[in-house]
Design a protein around this nucleic acid. Structure first.
Lengths: 193, 193, 193, 193
DNA sequence: AATGAATGAGTGTTCATTCAT
DNA sequence: GATGAATGAACACTCATTCAT
């Protein structure tokens, strides 16, 4: 499997650094190769093309993301608690990796529609986690019985995403994780009503 | 004034069509000129360069957007009603112009960071409208006295944006405006809590 | 006749200024029109095309040049004296019009081969003046009887031209006319030998 | 070293041919690439940009020029002999490479001021050779003790240059090298006086 | 497996010239 | 005669991908 080859992750990590520091449009394959310490041609032994690097990047980093969030919420009893854990984990993980935050919130959004559709495929795993929390909340009476799952999910994801993007665009000047509780409060009210 | 020169809007409208139908990266200046029925060089009598077309496009269309929303909410007495009017107007206007929806939700986001920063400048007018509603709601007791304006604004904008983007990505298959009331309900609860 | 129309010379003088200050390749027709205080299209009422402006410029200014030199040497008895008068007049006239010096020595040489061939046609009048001096000098024994007129003319013109070009390239920092006597001395020795 | 990469000289030689046959302004990069038998992009592996090709062309060809002239005059005892060797070598080398003669005498002079300034830098090596001959001649009494080195240099270079340019403009119809002796004679007289 | 030299398709912008008013 | 808005041809350079070694 690809992942077991050390150069695979080496190239993905190089891509994160190069894209974060140079921007999406200045992230040439040759720059990524140089950062990874391999020849240009070597990239193509591990990835089909440039787009494949970016999709793989997102898959590896977001797959990791979903796994960690699932761990965090596993032991919690209420949907409200799970929602809090999720917001906290989401904000904490992006806070910890400044390069990754820039890449996912700003740079990768400059990719074309095709790539973004594939990224959305990857995101579905995350949206599933949100949906599961919402369903649990509806079933156990924490959330409104009339709650529209899809809309609530869009509110939750849209709000977290907009919050992180604002933070990145403000050059990560303030503490993102400190906002978890307030954001959770807002979202919870939305779902309860 | 620029707007009085017919070719100015003619070129902007052509840009919307070309970008929506071909995608941001395939929207060559020559294609826009052809769609607008003018020579390539004529573009440069009205715009400094290609980026200027896109910024102007956003300014003209979003300026219009903010004006219309302000009209709609002008006569309303409560922040809740104003919020509803805004969500409805936002959804209705993008529903009516399918091309513009594609351009603002998907294609223009592929632009580089510089362009996006300028787009954000334009968006500030919109965010101001949201803030005014939130402040009014806090002052007259409709909304929680502890509501964080910035976060609430990010929730409102993030939710509407995510909802519209999902609708566009689903190829505008369902009625977006029909969601206004539910989205309004969600957001209102968020602000009240 | 063209010359009697005031705008004709107005445009030529504008061209000298624009070319001297902006360089040959930045001397767009629209800039010349603006400097001359006329509309772009008006240029084409007086000149066939852009090249025609430049040829006319050279004809008007160099025609003037040859006339003045002929006046200066008219009363002189010896070829040596005439040669001195010519060198002095050549240097003095270019010293007096800094813009024209830049245009003839640097900028107009960037024109294409066709234009330069036409400029050479104009120069023939000047070369004829030189030849006449040389012939007179050979006939009256001032110069060597074996003097090759063509080569001597190339030496005289080449030397004066190189001297003026060096002076222009040194940003006209020293007094060009002060060199007349030394240059004359050099050339005279060449012809006598 | 650049010169050891065969494609480097291959491209420069192609540029000489293309510029001589098509003229400076019609010498597109793609034409040079085609003539050199490489892809357009390959040009940019060896040269920074189009201007860099032209500067390098001049450096390679003129550097060679200066070296050869220095060899020729090395064994000569008098300044007069050295001057003759130089004129002969100058004429002979340009006679042998008709394309190069067209490029240096006509086409490259159409380049912009920046390029011409860089070309002048290269020429300084040649002017140094002339100056050394002049100084030697003054010191050993061959030339006038009052000879102005700078003016004499301008006469020598200006005369040779004008002679070659006339020859090129006359489509190289006569034997340039046959003029060496007469030109040398003229210049020598100039310096002696 | 790894290399890196070579490839070549693709596009924003300028500006001399025209012509309807 | 004078205008100036409109035209459209023309070209340097980048960079993802290949393939001989």
């Amino acid at each position: 499997m690809k992942k077991n080859k050390p150069k695979y992750m080496q190239i993905i990590d190089a891509a994160v650094v190069v894209i974060a520091e140079n921007g999406y449009h200045s992230a040439q394959v040759s720059k990524i190769a140089k950062q990874a310490g391999v020849a240009d041609g070597t990239i193509y032994l591990y990835f089909k093309n440039k787009e494949d690097i970016l999709i793989s990047l997102f898959q590896e980093k977001m797959g990791n993301f979903v796994e960690k969030i699932e761990e965090k919420i596993a032991g919690k009893d209420t949907a409200a608690e799970k929602l809090l854990m999720m917001v906290e984990a989401h904000f904490r993980m992006l806070s910890k990796d400044r390069h990754l935050a820039i890449v996912t919130q700003l740079e990768l959004r400059q990719s074309n529609k095709d790539l973004r559709l594939k990224i959305n495929e990857v995101l579905k795993g995350y949206l599933k986690v949100i949906d599961d929390i919402l369903i649990e909340g509806k079933e156990n009476g924490e959330f409104s019985s009339t709650l529209d799952i899809r809309l609530a999910r869009q509110m939750i994801f849209g709000t977290m995403d907009e919050t992180v993007t604002s933070w990145v665009m403000n050059e990560q000047k303030y503490d993102l994780t400190a906002l978890s509780s307030s954001v959770h409060h807002l979202l919870l009210n939305g779902c309860k009503g």
